[in-house]
Design a protein around this nucleic acid. Structure first.
Lengths: 347, 347
DNA sequence: CGGAGTCATTGAAACGTTTCATTAGACAGG
DNA sequence: CCTGTCTAATGAAACGTTTCAATGACTCCG
């Protein structure tokens, strides 16, 4: 298929040697004006395209970094990707986007391929934060890795994260201040550190002041949110929560949809706080309260740390950058004038 | 950096020749059981990772295809990407996701890099559908290309698209049936074929039955939608549209947000129909009517066409697959009981 | 026991670059 | 006219694979 025009033919056409063509491509200033022009003309005429495999083979490494995300369709990650891309672009580095789909096997397969391709470095939000020996191996073999939205327990790596415990606390304090005494935490699996941290945060915030019910979900999607809401609605009135803090906005939107569909009024009968503050949170049926994270910033910073490590010759110190989240209160959790006598009587 | 363990060291360790190791990797059945085991052990012990550059160099092509989208953060494209990924996975092919960000220069740079990497094929929604000589060149040089959500005027390529004229017509007929006489088309730039087709569709549907005002936007984002809504709200009451058909859901959500913020009631005072039916359309403040496209299917089919072309040895006939869109009517465009006397009086 | 036929393994060539030591040529100074 | 310096261009080696013709060892059959 791909017509194979090599440097050799360019050289012949221009009447110069192989090495000269290479120099024109890589160190143009070393080549005399006239020769350079002849070579460039030949390149244009033949439609020559440099073969990156050969270049890499010789050079030993590529000009690519990779970002492995949990879900390409999640607005949180797409924003992180955008941030990473813009930072990488400034350094002439290409970003390869890989989607693990929260599936450890797929993640591993991606890492295998990326390693074979000798990417310069990897930004990753690992599916499983605990026993990830595949990732360890990658690191041991010398590929720089920066953990995105992860961090604890990886002292041998740079990481970029948001203080999720704080995020959970903000949500918890807010809900407590609104007078809720039975609160659901919707999210899972707990092996995802973010989820565990957010849970930890709200637990800290509530203390003895309110009961926290964990409604566990298999992943962080709208569909799971709807299911969780169904589960909550099915609880006996006495112990049914009056508010939910969801581990991300997709879950929260799912909960909102399901509750609305069941005729449960938000926020009058049920308050919801999400996490991520994605673009659609503000546009939801009931504008969603959410914990905002600096998403693009996260991607940007992660990329900068990675490039820094790549460019440093060994003398690199791993850093952990932690951003502070911020609670954005909207209608979905705002205390209505009247209280939950209605909820009780309805239940 | 990357510790360089080559096939040579594996060979030495296992006490076999270079070629044998390669055979173990590529045609294991040709190698005797015992030898194979010895080689595999050596590979494991040394942590050998195949160098894909060298492999490609020898083989002449890679195991990757690329998808170049207009905007990674647009749910429409993320779904297309998911579809492409799942189809590619079945063929053991990796998908590289590239984001042009609706910027022709970036698109060109991506194509340059992809071509240097000798990707097997490219799925692309070109930024500019008209004079795209960069893409032509790629094709001429022999890289299979499938156009996604494009098609007209590219008879030398496979393409996968949705009948956008029909989509526009469905929206138009619906709005006309709801009694609207002044309708805005929000979208742009018109150089994007989809946008032009959707516009064409609604024009056809309305005919002489209603006036169509084009509110042009520089791109297809929520922000642009808000601006467009501002523009509409600023028109003199007499010629102000009572409904908008937006070229995609992001614009529609923007219009909805801005209108709501200005106190214009949707759908009582102003009806909105979007396009794409993204996941968030149903969850919007006022659930959004939208023209639904089979997004994942689009990505799947495009990938299948591409792989088909790649695997066929020359004897390939280009095909154009067109999917039919479907109008999903929700609250944002449903005729309320009362009519627009209110709008008039308010204006 | 010899020759044909299998089967497993080998060794070298080739892929398209980059790099680097070397050569050729021009020019200046003595 | 010789020597030394500087610039421009060359040619060969190297990167790590895959491929393929050739080799060697065995087995089978006559």
């Amino acid at each position: 298929m791909t017509t194979t025009t090599s440097i050799k033919e360019v050289a012949r056409r221009a009447g110069v040697s192989l090495g000269t063509v290479s120099n024109v491509l890589n160190q143009p200033e070393r080549v005399a004006e006239a020769t350079r022009k002849r070579v460039l003309d030949a390149i244009a005429e033949l439609g020559y395209v440099r073969n990156d495999s050969a270049r890499q083979l010789r050079a030993g490494s590529s000009r690519q970094i990779a970002i492995v995300v949990l879900d390409v369709a999640n607005p949180f990650f797409t924003d992180v990707v955008r941030g990473a891309e813009s930072a990488a672009e400034e350094h002439g580095v290409m970003v390869v986007v890989c989607n693990s789909g929260e599936d450890a096997d797929r993640e591993h397969r991606h890492l295998d391929l990326l390693e074979e391709q000798r990417v310069r470095g990897v930004l990753i939000t690992p599916v499983d934060d605990t026993r990830n020996s595949r990732l360890e191996k990658l690191i041991d073999r010398g590929t720089p890795v920066v953990l995105v939205d992860r961090g604890s327990g990886w002292h041998n790596r740079c990481s970029v994260a948001v203080n999720d415990v704080l995020g959970g606390r903000l949500a918890g304090e807010h809900l407590r201040a609104q007078g809720h005494r039975e609160i659901a935490f919707v999210g899972g699996p707990m092996t995802i550190q973010q989820v565990a941290d957010r849970h930890e945060g709200i637990k800290l915030a509530l203390g003895e002041a309110a009961d926290l019910v964990v409604v566990s979900t298999p992943n962080l999607t709208v569909a799971s949110g709807r299911q969780a809401a169904g589960q909550i609605a099915g609880m006996p009135p006495a112990e049914r929560p009056t508010a939910a803090f969801c581990a991300n906005d997709l879950l929260a939107l799912g909960v909102l949809q399901e509750m609305t569909q069941r005729g449960v009024k938000v926020p009058q009968d049920f308050a919801i706080v999400g996490y991520d503050d994605i673009e659609f949170a503000a546009a939801a049926a009931v504008p969603l309260s959410s914990v905002r994270q600096p998403r693009e910033q996260l991607g940007r910073t992660a990329t900068q740390l990675l490039l820094e490590e790549i460019e440093s010759d060994g003398g690199h110190e791993h850093r952990h950058v932690v951003f502070q989240p911020e609670l954005v209160v909207r209608a979905s959790s705002s205390r209505p004038a009247r209280r939950r006598s209605r909820t009780s009587s309805a239940g």
